[in-house]
Amino acid sequence: MSSAAPRALRVGERALLVELACGEATEAFHAELLRRRAAGALPGVREIVPAARTVLLDGVADPERLAAELSGWEVGPLPARVGGAIGIPVRYDGPDLAEVAALWGVSVEAAVRIHTAAEFRVAFCGFAPGFGYLTGLDERYGVPRRATPRTAVPAGSVALAGPYTGVYPRSSPGGWQLIGATDAVLWDTGREPAALLTPGTRVRFTVEGAAAGGGR
């Protein structure tokens, strides 16, 4: 994981965009940043935003110095998998489920088995408050976005695009392939944290109503 040193790009006056070799390295580097911030080593940093292959730090007092420093950091391993993944019960009846199964070259039932067998991890959030980009499906199950986005995707829709699974926190336009729906509350500003899916959270999707088996 430390084969390629992180590369820091300047972003304006007070931010750095750190590029990493792969998604796993990005998650490990993000975890390292959170550890260092918790230890008080990143004073002034107001945002740490992980994404697919990068982590953005905003509010860096001396970006030049931090950029030079972090290429030499010893990045710790991803935090140990203590405790279980959160379970999200899904009704697998989305309008694009058959199309996704066809893209995968499997039956609808097998597509549901593939999706419920994987353990996901929230790689990053974006698009809307509480919308997490979840990785965990094997590479060969990547799917394209829909050619024409829907003007209104219902809240709770479970959807796929590229290598990611996501759940729409509220109704919004969207171009992802809809494979199902959940009643889980993805975003609640009265809750701490407001987002059910925060970067690093592990997730398993289960068939709603099915006997609990490995969900927790």
Binding site: G12, A15, V49, A51, A52, T54, V55, L56, F124, G126
Partner: peptide, 10 residues
């Protein structure tokens, strides 16, 4: 480009 973090003024 893979999605990445955005700042004010970008």
């Amino acid at each position: 480009l893979a999605s990445e973090g955005m700042v004010l003024g970008a």
